[in-house]
Design a protein around this nucleic acid. Structure first.
Lengths: 124, 124
DNA sequence: CATCTATTTTAGTTTCAACTAAAGTAGATA
DNA sequence: TATCTACTTTAGTTGAAACTAAAATAGATG
């Protein structure tokens, strides 16, 4: 057997970043770009990869819309996990915890350069 | 800001291994050795480290008992997460998912030798 | 004290997740 | 067709998680 981290669904939800995305598309369908605009501290590519991960884990649905790709949470499919998320989001104390997590947790390479306005910052 | 995986509580629960442990001590207080005996595919050291992680994340309580150290889940403190776990454990479909996860997910070095009966396998 | 038993800790390895930068794809539009 | 915009994919980096083996700690017991 032998196991560790990474269960598709719970692992998807364990990442504050993906939870952030999930929340954005919980009640409205958003384009990848909209989602990226809501989290400008990461590249578009990073957001796209997380969306792909969420898709693969079955947490979000996506559809093409001309030039855009629209995403929305597959709430019904999440069962107990979805209920947990909704409860966490309602709960003020948990909101605080999320903030701390977002500040504390960090992985991957740090940005090489200080400027973060390269590829397409149209600032909404 | 900048974030990624690893939120103390949800990350703790995202690991099938830790969920396995958590379930063992959900309704009864168990010694570290008992827990290890229930998961013979990993070393005692590995179990101990996971218990430490669970402790630090506030998911379990521990107390000394002579030679032993007894662990139990801090169910009340887990809020929505605890409820999710209980629901998942009740749900047969989710049980199946956990099995798949335990088989598929894997990290860390593979065992160097085939014999796994080195340090203290008293086989209960 | 010596030693057994239960557990933790340390050091080192491997695998993986989250990122970046840059290249690639695809629809719309001139 | 060329080009803009929206998005995805690839290659490569970094940090951390899950382990192993072995050493260290600590309580019980002769």
């Amino acid at each position: 057997m032998r196991a560790a981290l990474a269960s598709p669904l719970l692992a998807a939800v364990a990442s504050p970043r993906r939870r952030e995305i999930l929340r954005l598309v919980w009640n409205s369908e958003l384009a990848a770009g909209d989602i990226h605009r809501a989290m400008p501290d990461v590249t578009f590519g990073a957001v796209s990869l997380q969306l792909k991960a969420l898709s693969k884990a079955g947490l979000v649905h996506s559809r093409a819309d001309g030039n855009h790709r629209l995403y929305r949470a597959r709430r019904a499919e999440l069962g107990p996990v979805g209920r947990m998320l909704e409860n966490m989001w309602k709960d003020q104390l948990w909101k605080l915890k999320l903030l701390v997590e977002l500040e504390q947790s960090r992985r991957g390479p740090r940005p090489r350069k200080k400027t973060r306005k390269s590829h397409s910052s149209r600032t909404a």
